[in-house]
């Protein structure tokens, strides 16, 4: 089992999968870092985005990698509107209400998809989906490499936005000191919505990267949420770099523990390392003190 023939592909595979986790987690961590809420609707939004990518391909013939450029802005706007006009007003600024509202939204979105599109599992068959690149003993599917590179680019772009743009600076200011930012004339409600929009746009990108090798049905996104939560916490809530590195780590841990302990038990590897990390370092690997 310990031979490099299996170890190297396992690690590479973990990195590829981890990149997707990182992207889903990026959206969550942004929202958490600024709004301090755990967004339970994240998985449902991912599912919705996957449906959008699916229909973009089947109805409009738009390749998922091109659809990104349409869907990401679209979901940004949707996320913005959702926070500004639904979540924000309904939650009245209380944690437990954010919880309920996002839970309610998750149920609503998932079942709306079920009602309108039925429960059928949908897949798309792209000509390049089965192309692989050989790296020594490892065969890596082309879509997974594309996903990996895209995630790195998106993470860098997000980081740059946060560092250098006025909006980014405003987001950081709100994240650190809401009241102070408000006194400086920053429109906090607007920044909240912008952040939620960015988080939702991340999910749209993830959906376009997933759909070539995965499937979509009304519950497809759920599979990625729990894991994204662990990534967010491991990386330190609110940290872009943390989410990226945390995602890659979780991918590799999952892949290796699956190889050594089997798929079912292997999932424990993620949660156990998550628990242990938190018990030892309660603010995550990259987080500021809680």
């Amino acid at each position: 089992m310990l031979s490099p023939v299996i170890l190297l592909p396992a690690i590479l595979n973990g990195l590829m999968t981890g990149a997707i986790y990182a992207l889903v987690a990026l959206g969550l961590t942004l929202i958490y870092g600024v709004l301090h809420i755990i967004n339970f609707a994240h998985g449902a939004l991912l599912t919705a985005a996957m449906f959008a990518a699916f229909f973009a391909y089947t109805l409009l013939g738009l390749d998922p990698y091109l659809a990104v450029f349409v869907l990401a802005p679209l979901f940004f706007v949707a996320g913005y509107a959702l926070q500004r006009f639904v979540i924000g007003p309904a939650a009245h600024g209380e944690d437990r209400n954010f919880l309920l509202v996002t839970l309610g939204l998750a149920v609503l979105i998932e079942n709306a998809l079920l009602y309108f599109f039925r429960a059928d599992t949908r897949t798309i068959d792209l000509p390049y989906a089965f192309n692989v690149i050989e790296l020594g003993p490892a065969f890596i599917a082309v879509p997974r490499i594309v996903a990996f590179v895209t995630v790195i680019v998106v993470a860098l772009a997000l980081w740059a936005i946060m560092q250098w743009t006025d909006t980014g600076k405003a987001i950081r200011a709100v994240a650190r000191e809401k009241l102070g930012a408000e006194l400086c004339g920053i429109n906090v409600t607007h920044i909240f919505a912008i952040t939620f929009g960015l988080g939702t746009a991340c999910v749209a990108v993830a959906a376009c990267l997933l759909i070539p090798t995965y499937y979509v049905n009304p519950t497809a996104g759920e599979a990625f949420v729990l894991i994204a939560f662990t990534v967010v916490v491991l990386g330190g809530m609110g940290s872009v770099a943390g989410a990226l590195i945390g995602g890659l780590c979780v991918g590799v841990i999952e892949s290796l523990s699956s190889v050594f302990f089997g798929e079912s038990l292997g999932q424990i590897g993620i949660f156990a390392s998550f628990i242990v990390t938190l018990l030892v370092r309660p603010s995550g690997l990259f987080g500021a003190r809680a």
């Binding site: 190889v259 089997g262 798929e263 999932q267």
Partner: peptide
């Protein structure tokens, strides 16, 4: 090899 449902990938 047992695995949970849903699975995100089958590479391993």
């Amino acid at each position: 090899i047992p695995h949970p449902t849903p699975m995100r990938e089958f590479e391993s």
